[in-house]
Design a protein around this nucleic acid. Structure first.
Lengths: 234, 234
DNA sequence: CGGAAACTTGATCGAATTCAAATAAGGTGG
DNA sequence: CCACCTTATTTGAATTCGATCAAGTTTCCG
């Protein structure tokens, strides 16, 4: 029902979406960095918060989540990582992170050494520029997430999450007849939008009943984009 | 009742707290950047979201807030800027920001040209390193804010805001007999913690009744730190 | 096929908002 | 310095959104 999310070949450089816009020359410089391919089963942890690590990962196939673990046992998902996404652009300058990365589906990814990446950054202003834009974008996303979590209703937050994922798939031309891959469990949506699984179920049911979305077999179709945006509150 | 928040002299370099740890040599390089001093009255906007700007500001005296404006008219305060803070370390690489900066009290600040700052960053690895740590810290703060807004109760969020401000003042040795400067209005606390003024009033009243804090004349004293931490839920 | 994980639905509860109104604090011009 | 007007804060009552509790159903996977 949905086109495969997987990308073309096994090279990190080719898959790292934000580097894809570099000139061919720099692109190959980047792609030539030593890298190793890895695999993580669904629900497995790719990076655990607090552990020292000298690599960053780039998702090759599948979805992952980046979250903060809260003391009570619940967690706040900060972002979903899709193929082509880097775990954290800022991680290049940290030796450890407070954010855990976990596979949502089975995930193929590759890891690059932070120091080598850092050297490319310093040597190549064009790459550096690409990265700094990435930081800025990610920063904006998190700031907007904070604003949403603080001030929007449960229904608005779910609608906006769907819209954001819809947008990311549309950008990548990965929507087919309205459908796109949506492997999230209710628990993921609950953790991302700061509510309970029970309530997420009710909100989604309501949206389906209104004919705004369809959701089945890990795929989602937006049937009434205008109304979904309306529910999202701007 | 509270020591003056104001710093020693008029030089941005000397005031920019995160640069203060550089070697004397680099410090003077930084301090010698062209800068101009400015003043903003309480409640005035220092930078409005969306406007192109080629400067970043460093707070010299007073408090400011950095917030995202939401369409409904309410806003999410992302951070409070105290003397020595830079408006946004990431702004160096953006020509505009989605975040508005507004004076909480009357504020003295100075502005530095982004491009000149950027050149220092590129030329001086030590300065660059300092800045990248700053980015990482600010990123962590916002991520934790998102987690708090998504998953903590109103009382916890207020307690944590007070603890964070208490901590920042303690670091700077600006607490005298338990008291520190606290010029926030209930509306600021409400906007920072994602709740209504009315409820903030109730939460603070409850904390005062319990003898956890005292709050008067724009100053706050933590009377039972252990209990405040307890309310904050670790 | 069987057990576990995921989802749904109903009933009840509670935290926080909303509405309303009174009091307090601050700032300004005369 | 007072009178006046605006901005803040407090408190109560009613309401609502979303959580919690509980149980049943469906889907998934080994």
């Amino acid at each position: 029902m949905v086109c495969n999310v997987r990308s073309r070949d096994g090279l990190c450089g080719a898959l790292f979406r934000d580097v894809g816009r570099l000139t061919a020359n720099l692109h190959s410089t980047f792609a030539s960095l030593p890298q190793s391919n890895k695999f993580a089963r669904r629900r497995r942890t790719i990076y655990r918060a607090g552990e020292p690590s000298n690599t960053v990962a780039i998702i090759h196939d599948g979805w992952a989540s980046a979250y903060i673990q809260l003391p009570k046992g619940n967690r706040q998902i900060l972002s979903f990582l899709l193929p082509g996404d880097i775990t954290s652009a800022a991680a290049v300058f940290e030796d450890r992170s407070e954010v855990t990365i976990e596979a949502v589906t089975d995930v193929e990814y590759c890891v690059i050494d932070k120091h080598q990446l850092s050297e490319v950054l310093q040597a190549e202003p064009e790459v550096f520029n690409t990265f700094s834009k990435l930081w800025a974008r990610r920063k904006n996303e998190i700031e907007n997430l904070a604003a949403d979590l603080g001030h929007r209703t449960a229904e608005e937050r779910v609608a906006r999450l769907i819209l954001a994922l819809y947008g990311r798939h549309a950008e990548r031309d990965m929507i087919r007849e309205g459908w796109f891959s949506f492997p999230l469990r209710l628990q993921h949506i609950a953790d991302a939008t700061g509510q309970t699984v029970v309530h997420v179920s009710r909100v989604l049911s309501s949206m389906r009943r209104q004919g705004v979305i369809e959701l089945e077999e890990r795929s989602l179709a937006v049937r009434d984009l205008a109304e979904l945006r309306n529910i999202g509150g701007n």
